[in-house]
Amino acid sequence: MSDVPTEVAELAGRVFDLARDGDAAGLAAYVDAGVPVNLTNDAGDTLVMLAAYHGHADAVRALVARGADVNRLNDRGQSPVAGAVFKGEDDVVRVLVDGGADPLAGHPTAVDTARMFGREDLLTVLSPPM
């Protein structure tokens, strides 16, 4: 962010902290005021990725309601739903799946991650009904 004005970098930092901390109301207010819902940090993590990885279902829900891309991969090719599976954040996994998350996106996929950790219960959430 070296070529970004200091004030903008500070604002972005505050918004990323809100996502990590799970401040759903604060995130909603900033996005409603014009902060891009798919804002990314220098690692390619979106607000929804940070909120999901840190286990904040309400923050993820608020971002999804505002059009967050639940399938956007970070620079390491990881998806928000795979991160939530990895961290064992079951409620977040459900919010993301309900919001349209692709359980086969990224590497490893959310399905692969659930299998790796023996999370058969999440495999049923991640697999569409036949």
Rank of each mutant, 00 (worst) to 15 (best):
M1I: 01
M1V: 06
M1A: 13
D3C: 01
P5A: 14
T6M: 07
E7T: 12
V8D: 06
E10A: 15
E10V: 13
E10H: 11
V15S: 05
F16K: 10
L18I: 01
L18Y: 13
A19Y: 02
A19F: 03
G22T: 05
D23V: 01
D23S: 11
A28M: 09
A28C: 10
A29C: 01
A29D: 14
Y30F: 12
A33E: 14
G34P: 09
V35I: 15
P36R: 06
V37A: 10
V37H: 12
V37T: 12
V37S: 11
V37Q: 09
V37Y: 11
N41K: 05
D42Y: 09
D42L: 12
A43N: 10
A43Y: 11
D45S: 13
D45I: 00
D45P: 00
T46M: 05
T46Y: 04
L47G: 04
M49R: 06
A51K: 02
A51T: 03
A52H: 06
A52D: 04
Y53E: 12
G55L: 10
G55R: 12
H56G: 02
A57K: 06
A57P: 12
D58W: 03
A59G: 12
L63Q: 11
L63K: 13
V64G: 05
D69Y: 08
D69V: 07
V70S: 09
V70T: 15
L73I: 10
L73A: 11
L73V: 10
L73E: 10
N74W: 04
G77H: 04
Q78R: 14
P80C: 07
V81K: 03
V81I: 13
V81M: 04
A84L: 05
A84H: 04
K87S: 13
K87A: 15
E89P: 00
D90E: 15
D91H: 02
V92K: 09
V92I: 08
R94G: 01
R94L: 02
V95H: 04
V95K: 02
V95A: 13
L96E: 01
L96V: 06
L96C: 06
V97C: 03
D98A: 15
G99I: 03
G100V: 10
A101F: 07
D102E: 08
D102F: 08
P103S: 15
P103L: 12
L104D: 14
A105N: 01
A105Q: 08
G106A: 12
G106P: 07
H107W: 09
H107K: 13
P108Q: 07
T109H: 09
V111Q: 02
D112C: 00
D112T: 06
T113Y: 03
T113E: 15
T113P: 01
A114S: 11
R115W: 01
F117E: 01
F117N: 03
G118S: 04
R119W: 08
E120L: 09
L126V: 11
S127P: 00
M130G: 14
